[in-house]
Amino acid sequence: MKLLGAVIILVRALVVLFLVTFMITVLVRLLPGDPVDTLMPFATDEGREQLRSELGLNINIVQYYFRWLGDFVRGDFGQWYASTGDGGGVPIGQMLGVALPRSLFLMFYTMVFSLTLALPIGIFLGYRADTRIDRTLSNAMFALSSIPSFALGLSLVYILGLRLDLLPVLGYVPFTESPGEHFKSMVLPVLSLSVGLIAGFSRLLRVDTIATLREDFVTMASSKGLSNGWILWRHVLRPSSATLMTSAALQMGGLIGGAVVIEIIFALNGFGMLLNTAIVTRQYLAIQSLVALIAVAFIFFNLVVNVLYAVVDPRVRSARG
């Protein structure tokens, strides 16, 4: 039964992936302008013909889609074309090798950091709902979350980077090169992205916590003589975290391609910047493959959250058979 459930979930994910990537293929084809003219204005006739066939402009879109899908599944994301046509292109896989780890680390640290802070804050605000400290903190969070991340980023650069001279103001250091410098280089971008997330996450958790605290099992737990802290962490947190998890999964998908502004400010040049450049320079194949990867990420994180739901709330397991 459990196996069947897992298979159904996987099949559903694959169908979604299939539909999304096909939609992307259609949308990319609908972009205005002739891709050949835009990508290789200086190519020879043979070069142009080759590009036409690589972009599938000479075959129908369904045929092209399956060819692209085959390449994509094999990990061949196509190449970043040079305007001269042949010879100058860079495999997109190689460029991803540089850009993707940066975005993944950025996303990972941001999520770990913001959840680490949002969990206690959200639980605490829910516990102290409608008291003065709740109102003060909630308003402060709301104010913080309305600061654009780039403005916050630049202020943090000024304070932590320049004034206090604690951290590098930009750039990325690979973990393998120096773990210490790696962490340092990630602090400011992670902080800039996290503040808004912490505010958002803790608001979600606060609301669900308030609802959970009204449950009988919380009174029951108090009647056992457990401390408030124990009750909040062991009894209240998990049943209150469903909305938070859903939101976190969406943010994880979103942060991979959507942290462009922060990537620009801190010269991180990760996945978001790569996608941005691909769109600006009309790298058709790159757009298609990169957007498909984001879709894969979204679906993956959703799957992870589905699994986590079952871990956090065992009732979900049985509902799935």
Binding site: L154, Y158, G161, D165, V169, L170, G171, I265, A267
Partner: peptide, 18 residues
């Protein structure tokens, strides 16, 4: 040659020795 699009960050990188 490091691309830093934001002008104020290029200046900050200089101040910081990056």
């Amino acid at each position: 040659f490091l691309t830093i699009v934001d002008g104020s960050q290029r200046r900050n990188a200089l101040l910081k020795g990056q």
